[in-house]
Design a protein around this nucleic acid. Structure first.
Lengths: 229, 229
DNA sequence: CAGTAATATTGATATAGATCAATCTTTTTA
DNA sequence: TAAAAAGATTGATCTATATCAATATTACTG
């Protein structure tokens, strides 16, 4: 029972894997990457396109999502210090299975995927770290899967707010510079529903909002809403 | 658009990874595993318990699922030749993040997880194969995630039937020896709804059923139902 | 093989949340 | 800075699907 269900949408710090590289390997990897800036809304990797690189986020905020026709499913949010696209390491298909886009202006390192593959094969410790990251990723997405399929809208939105607060902004008060529509995609519901629930949360003094600024005033109650569904 | 959305619930053949081992390594691995039979319904690995082994399915059929309280989310079905529990390789937590149970009587190899870890670190090619498996797994679960959140019940059930036919039983006609409740869990809906939709499918001559035996008579139409949602 | 338990089926009802439509507000741009 | 576009909000309606309740069927057990 109890066990705080961690359905958080944000990936954990991944950069640790590079510690397993030798100095020489690290130099090689650094040579085989480029740093780029992406503007708000820009797509960094498009689902279905050729995956020539692994993405490392230096600054900003990204979303990783599936799209089919007009429908979108956000798999996770990427905050700085994390990697995207490890699942394209699989030699069998080097196609991005999902899209990656920037919520805000972001700075990104694009790491050559073949060099990455080489290092995995060359350095088992590095490979082992990569496996850790992939595993944590799966667990996180699985929990999000559970949350989106088994919790109802109030719970999902409460969960999302807590997650943003705890993991992305690391503060009970934060500037949420994304549209309601994007919030709705994150929580897996309609835009109108997000608005109505946020209003309800305000009325019940669980949060307070001015402009894009949100403050979580009663995290205990929000947690309870998560847990009850 | 087009692109047959592969939201299949069944894992692919995984056994390939062992090909990357040396003879000596393979012998070591074989020494560090035991073969066991599990009866229908038995739990092979319980979410939250200590993950001391990786599961390899020789014969039978398994389900991998999350549980919280009374709620269950089936992540995937495992057919023979596949591994379960790779995500527990992560050194940081050797706890099963999900449960694994047998649909039918099943024969399973339990492989010592530390030996597995050792081989990953020792043999980068093996590690690379393991990464492939983890990646394919993620992709598959992500697609199932999309399916369960974005398709409605008719589409989900059609998808499931096609998947069972194509991947598990490898035939348009098969004996589906699981309860309606379990079917419902797989398709992410209520038992009653499964029954009603199966009835509708029969009326429209898309499938025919006698007892536990199901035959898909019009897979084209079923595919169309999947795609339209 | 009778009796009980488990599962399947059918119908009626309730509801969360989507969708649609209209207005208001903010942001962008020319 | 005025006009247009994009986004936010509110209310009304609709519907897919869960839930509840009753009965039928199948499977199990002593």
């Amino acid at each position: 029972m109890a066990a705080a269900l961690s359905s958080c949408t944000v990936a954990d710090d991944h950069c640790k894997c590079f510690e397993a590289l030798t100095d020489k390997q690290r130099v090689l990897l650094e040579k085989k990457q480029v740093t780029l800036e992406f503007k708000k809304g820009e797509i960094i990797g498009k689902q279905g396109s050729f995956a020539s690189h692994i993405i490392f986020l230096c600054e900003g905020l990204l979303k990783v999502y599936l799209e089919h026709g007009n429908e979108v499913l956000i798999l996770k949010i990427i905050s700085p210090g994390n990697l995207v696209g490890l699942s394209s390491l699989s030699e069998s298909d080097d196609i991005f299975q999902y899209s990656t886009a920037a919520y805000h202006n972001s700075i990104v390192n694009l790491i050559d995927i073949n060099t990455f593959r080489l290092l995995v094969r060359e350095n088992g410790h590095f490979a082992s770290k990569v496996i850790n990251i992939l595993s944590e990723n799966s667990n996180q997405i699985n929990n999000r899967f559970f949350c989106l399929t088994h919790r109802q809208s109030y719970g999902r939105l409460a969960d999302l707010l807590l997650c943003l607060s705890k993991r992305v902004f690391k503060s009970a008060e934060f500037e949420l510079d994304i549209t309601r529509k994007e919030l709705a995609e994150l929580a897996g519901m309609s835009t109108e529903n997000v608005i109505r629930i946020l209003k309800k949360f305000q009325e019940e003094k669980l949060i307070s909002m001015k402009g894009k600024r949100i403050e979580l005033s009663n995290t205990t109650a929000l947690h309870r809403i998560c847990d009850l569904g």
